[in-house]
């Protein structure tokens, strides 16, 4: 593990008018660490994710990221060009709905290759080879490389979205309900895949989910949110096996046992 965090979130607050989106959230994320943010719909977890990932300007607070040169930069004091470059090279963002993160009318190969072309890769053969390898890694038959994602199942689309995000070797990936809307068997496969990739690539990730099983399987650390506040924060198995806060106990006790 590195001696410096990758991301420093300091007192991030987002108001929508008078209504609280999230309030005074602070944490640090280290390289290779997976943080799950759990809570019900409306608890502020997606607001927090967007505010950290520069998709939504927070009302107050700072988000600092350690660039590849080792320097910390305040994301909201960076130029837009640099921020967007960071987002499509060093970061990934996996949307709940794959259609939000994919180009549905271009082929799977081009979806994966887009980031490579965006950073200046100009060799068709190499781009295609890399895309093909990544399709293999996310368990999509490489003979589907020229098919459009609209011909794919939900699980395949989500795997394609993951490949598209990881092709540039990002260090930090944001995931918003990555298994939402998928069948249970498809979820298990996706989770295992994500878990393997995160381990192999040493990715840091922030995963927003309302599914505690997803948090258990993927994350090292967990934050529980309610009404825009982080009410409990700790090691994932500690929070799940020994929940302290009334709301966390309610969440944990609400899991259906199979």
């Amino acid at each position: 593990m590195s001696d410096h965090p990758l991301l420093r979130v300091n007192a991030v607050t987002k108001f929508y008018g008078a209504r609280v989106g999230c309030r005074d959230v602070s944490f640090e994320l280290w390289p290779g660490e997976v943080l799950a943010v759990v809570g019900e719909s409306g608890s502020g977890k997606t607001t927090l994710l967007n505010a950290i990932s520069t998709r939504l300007l927070p009302t107050s607070g700072t988000v600092e990221y350690r660039m590849r040169d080792g320097q910390f930069r305040d994301l909201y004091r960076m130029g837009e060009a640099e921020r967007r470059f960071l987002m499509r090279t060093d970061w990934g963002f996996v949307h709940q709905n794959p259609a939000d993160g994919l180009r549905m009318t271009v082929s799977a190969g081009a979806n994966v290759g887009e980031r490579l072309m965006a950073i200046g890769d100009r060799h068709y053969g190499n781009i295609r080879d890399t895309a093909s390898q990544w399709l293999g890694r996310v368990e999509i038959d490489t003979d589907r490389i020229d098919d459009q994602p609209r011909d794919f199942s939900g699980g395949m689309r989500q795997r394609l979205q993951i490949a598209r995000n990881l092709v540039t070797g990002p260090r930090l990936v944001f995931m918003d309900e990555p298994t939402g809307g998928l069948d249970v068997s498809v979820q298990a496969r996706l989770l295992d895949l994500v878990r393997g990739l995160v381990n192999d690539l040493g990715l840091a990730a922030i995963v927003v989910t309302h599914d505690l099983a997803v948090a258990r399987l993927l994350s090292h650390r967990m934050m529980v949110m309610k009404d825009g506040n982080v009410i409990e924060h700790g090691l994932t198995d500690r929070v799940l096996d020994d929940p302290r806060e009334p709301y966390t106990q309610l969440l944990v006790s609400s899991i259906l046992q199979v």
Partner: peptide
């Protein structure tokens, strides 16, 4: 911001097809 990767996506699609 000179983000022109998308133009090559179009050409990529051409070659792929």
């Amino acid at each position: 911001l000179e983000e022109y990767g998308l133009m090559h996506v179009k050409l990529y699609e051409d070659i792929a097809k």
